[in-house]
Design a protein around this nucleic acid. Structure first.
Length: 467
RNA sequence: GGCGCCAUCGCCAAGUGGUAAGGCCGGAGCCUGCAAAGCUUCUAUCCCCAGUUCAAAUCUGGGUGGCGCCUCCA
């Protein structure tokens, strides 16, 4: 396995801390709204990573947190006159529903900030004791960035006093402009938690470091986890600060490898609420099968920015269609697992920093190859056996091709229309049998008008939704 | 202003020193009663300039054009 480390900025041969085991921590969502395509991209990328590592015989422990303490959550609760818990429960459930629709497997551990206060308190205390954090007269506890000589080693930034000070609003009580809150003193009665440092709320960066120590870390290792991932925007300040907290409160660095996925833009523009172009997964799912979205969102290398647009999605879907048409040809066959050159090639390609583009190319070529063989000899048992093995791997490694191939092509058609179409097909076949092609073609026009294509095959007449 | 990323066929997109993958679209053909599907086949020298090298899309320098982070953010 090779992984591009976004801190070292080079592709490295992956070496796990413990033999054949991998600890993976990914920054999850703050649950104050529905998940958008950006959340999907990140979750998909690391879902794929876990699958690739697992197929490489690593035992992967994957943790992805839920941030359920946050100012935005409080704001939302006030706006909607609901409790904090109602908000976080609603959107946590929604997040799980959307991720599941995209074929994303649940992480092994899903820690929540509200369940991790003890670990956070311990980390703050350790930082204070070691002289890396201080309390202000106002009751806040800040991390002292000047006390960490390796601060900024993650993002590779250069400290620039003038610049930083002009852009960061200083509370006046911080020692350095870059210092960040570990514990914020709050006493307005909104949402507070008691702590050894007074009533308040934890700083955002703290929960990840604390939960990693609690759930994944081994103090004897030089790194808390093998891999830490998240969106590219988290590199600074979030991951920089996480790393500082861990480094200064314990004896190890946070992660051996850092992975950051690129952004999802909509029609060339950054997705944001202010631009009014946020694209929620649940809305996308109204028009497209979850697997189609998965296939499309995964189709571009994870480190590149992804420009989402409907035209590209549709041409991407046509690629997945070909996989499903092959599945139709193989429908009902039992999978007999056997090694094929395709399987080896696919695993190897994905082990190269998840080269999905090349993986898709391999799939396209494999599908064409099998089709060609089946065209030449529809009973080619060897080809069929190979094909089922190949597709089984695609399903488990990439997570698509899992649907019933007939239903896949009929997304969005209800039973009534399906019945109508099937009736028309029966009528058309009657006409064809009588060689009444005028009638059969006019029936076909009727069927086409319903938004479907039909195809006559040796196995019967099948129909698919157009586009 | 600081730090960083990117620029490959009409569109999407791999390749990062050894002579341009794959998909979509389009053309031609095979198959088909005709279609659809499937198959075959055709279509780029890699933003510009200079340099290093036997050899560069791939390295270096300089342009031009996009974009990201620096404030909450996947």
């Amino acid at each position: 396995m090779y992984i591009y480390d976004s801190v070292k900025k080079e592709k490295l041969k992956f070496k796990s801390l413990k033999p054949k085991q991998v600890s993976l921590y990914v920054c999850g969502p703050t649950v104050y709204d529905d998940a958008h395509l950006g959340h999907a991209k990140s979750a998909l990328v690391f879902d794929l990573l876990k699958r690739v590592l697992s197929h490489d015989n690593y035992k992967v422990t994957y943790a992805r947190n839920i941030t359920d303490v946050d100012d935005k959550i409080i704001k939302k609760a006030q706006e909607q006159n609901k409790s904090i818990k109602e908000i976080t429960d609603t959107y946590t459930t929604a997040y799980h529903r959307d991720m599941s629709a995209l074929g994303i497997q649940a992480p092994d551990i899903e820690p929540r900030a509200t369940e991790s206060f003890e670990a956070m308190h311990e980390m703050i205390s350790a930082l204070i004791n070691k002289g890396h954090a201080y309390a202000t007269p106002a009751g806040d506890v800040y991390f002292d960035t000047a006390s960490d000589k390796n601060y900024l080693s993650i993002s590779g930034r250069v400290q620039n006093e003038e610049d930083t000070q002009s852009r960061v609003e200083s509370s006046g009580q911080k020692k350095n402009a870059t210092d960040f809150a570990l514990w914020k003193s709050v006493s307005d009665g909104s949402l507070t938690f008691s702590s050894p440092f007074g009533e308040g709320r934890p700083g955002w960066h703290l929960e990840c470091s604390a939960m990693i120590e609690k759930h994944l870390s081994d103090q004897d290792e030089a790194y808390a986890v093998d891999i830490h991932g998240g969106g590219a925007d988290l590199l600074f300040p979030h991951h920089e600060n996480e790393a500082a907290q861990t480094r200064c409160s314990s004896n190890h660095e946070l992660a051996r490898y850092w992975m950051h996925n690129g952004f999802v833009n909509i029609d060339g523009e950054k997705m944001s609420k202010s631009l009014g172009n946020s694209f929620f997964i649940k809305d996308a799912l109204k028009s497209y099968d979850g697997e189609v979205l998965r296939f499309y969102l995964l189709s571009v290398h994870y480190r590149s920015n992804f420009n989402f647009n409907e035209d590209d999605l549709l041409s991407s879907k046509k690629r997945l269609d070909k996989l499903y048409r092959l599945k139709k040809r193989l429908f009902g066959l039992k999978v007999v697992e056997e090694k094929t050159s395709f399987i080896e090639a696919l695993k190897e390609t994905l082990s190269d920093d998840m080269n999905v583009s090349k993986a898709y190319a391999l799939i396209d070529e494999m599908v064409s190859d099998i089709n060609e063989k089946l065209d030449a000899n529809p009973k080619d048992k060897v080809a069929k056996r190979e094909a089922t093995s190949n597709l089984a791997l695609v399903e488990s490694l990439l997570g698509f091709g899992l649907n019933n191939p007939f239903e896949y092509f009929q997304h969005g058609f209800d039973t009534t229309i399906k019945t109508t179409i099937n009736d028309l097909i029966l009528q058309r076949n009657e006409a064809k049998k009588e060689k009444n092609f005028e009638r059969s073609d006019s029936i076909r026009d009727e069927i086409l008008a319903l938004g479907v294509n039909i195809m006559d095959t040796p196995e019967g007449t099948f129909w698919e939704a157009k586009e």
